[in-house]
Design a protein around this nucleic acid. Structure first.
Length: 285
DNA sequence: GTCTATGTTTGCGG
DNA sequence: TCCGCAAACATAGA
C-alpha cells in the first residue's frame, strides 16, 4: 500500500518522534528474509552501536543514514509498517525486525505479508541511482517530464508505475493523476501533445502533494492497511476521486467510474473524461 | 468454509 | 523495447 505520500508520512513521523540521533543498541530479526543481501546475524552485528545520523526518503524507500558510512534502506512493499514501542515490549505476531534504541524505545517493523525488505549498504547509490526522478523535486520540470514521456513508447499507466521512469508513484496515485489530467491509462506516452504532458505532470504532483497533506491513503479496515508511526490512519481515502470507486459518479461529470485491468493492475477511470485511445486496446499499435 | 483480490517489486520468456 | 506472467506471502471481503 505505501506509495510516496505514505512513505513520506512515516519519515516525517520518525523525525518528529526524534528518532534521528539515536544510537542502535541492538537489532533483532524475527523473519530472516526481511533482511536482504546479508545474513540477519551480520546485519545485527554491523548495525549495533551505530547512530542514526539522518532519516530521509527516496521514492518509496525510507533511508536511514547511519554513522561511519553505512545506510539502511527500508522498503515497506505492500504491508510494512513502523511503530515506536517501549524497549522490552514483546514483538507482535507480524513484527519481522526490531531496532532497540538507546533511549528506552524500540522501532518495530510490522509486515503481515513479509514482502518488506531492509538492506544495509555502504553505497546506497547503487540502488537509489537506478530510480527515476523524484516527482516533487523542485528541479524536475514539466519539460523534462515531457521529454521522458515521448522518449518512451509505453502505455501511460505502466509507465507511471515504472520506478525508473518516475520514482514513488503507485497504483492509487497513478489512477488519480490520470483522472485529473483527463488521460486514458492505455494512451501511449509518445502520442501525448505538449499540453497533455504538462497536464499529466501537474496532475501527478498535485495528487502526491494532496496525499502528503492528508497523511496518506488508508483504504479498508484491515490492520495491514497503511498507518502512521502511532497507528494513525491517513485521510486521503476521503479525497480519492476514482481509485476503488467503481460505479460511483465521476466528480467532474457524474458518469459512473469504470474498472479495467491494465498491466495486470486494477485501474479506475471515468469513461467519459478519459477518452480511450483510438484503434486497438493496445493504444494505437 | 471457499474463492478472489490486493496498494510492490523482480525476473523470466516471448 | 515492451508486455504478460509468476512469485514472494497473508488477510479481507464476498
Amino acid at each position: 500500500m505505501p506509495e510516496l505520500p505514505e512513505v513520506e508520512t512515516v519519515v516525517r513521523d520518525l523525525r518528529a518522534a526524534r528518532v534521528t540521533g539515536r544510537l542502535i543498541r541492538a537489532a533483532v530479526v524475527h523473519w530472516h528474509r526481511t533482511v536482504s543481501g546479508m545474513s540477519p546475524a551480520r546485519f545485527a552485528a554491523l548495525v549495533r552501536g551505530r547512530r542514526i545520523a539522518a532519516i530521509g526518503r527516496r521514492a518509496k524507500y525510507i533511508v536511514l543514514t547511519l554513522d561511519r558510512g553505512l545506510t539502511i534502506l527500508v522498503h515497506l512493499r505492500m504491508t510494512g509498517q513502523l511503530r515506536i514501542e517501549r524497549c522490552g515490549a514483546p514483538a507482535g505476531p507480524h513484527d519481522r525486525l526490531v531496532l532497540k534504541l538507546d533511549d528506552g524505545r524500540a522501532l518495530h517493523f510490522r509486515d503481515t505479508r513479509k514482502f518488506g525488505r531492509w538492506q544495509l549498504l555502504e553505497n546506497p547509490e547503487i540502488v537509489l541511482d537506478r530510480l527515476g526522478p523524484e516527482p516533487l523535486d523542485p528541479a524536475f520540470t514539466a519539460a523534462a517530464f515531457a521529454r521522458r514521456l515521448t522518449g518512451a513508447r509505453r502505455r501511460l499507466k505502466p509507465l507511471l508505475l515504472d520506478q525508473s521512469f518516475v520514482a514513488g508513484v503507485g497504483n492509487i496515485y497513478a489512477d488519480e493523476a490520470l483522472w485529473l489530467a483527463r488521460l486514458h491509462p492505455l494512451r501511449r506516452s509518445d502520442t501525448l501533445g505538449g499540453a497533455e504532458a504538462v497536464r499529466l505532470f501537474r496532475a501527478m504532483r498535485e495528487v502526491l502533494r494532496r496525499g502528503i497533506a492528508a497523511r496518506g491513503t488508508s483504504l479498508g479496515t484491515g490492520r495491514s492497511n497503511f498507518r502512521g508511526l502511532r497507528e494513525q490512519h491517513g485521510r486521503n481515502q476521503e479525497r480519492v476521486r476514482v481509485f476503488r470507486r467503481t460505479g460511483a459518479p465521476c466528480p467532474r461529470c457524474s458518469t459512473p467510474i469504470a474498472r479495467l485491468i491494465v498491466g495486470q493492475r486494477s485501474t479506475h477511470i471515468c469513461p467519459r473524461c478519459q477518452a480511450a485511445p483510438r484503434a486497438s486496446a493496445g493504444g494505437g499499435r
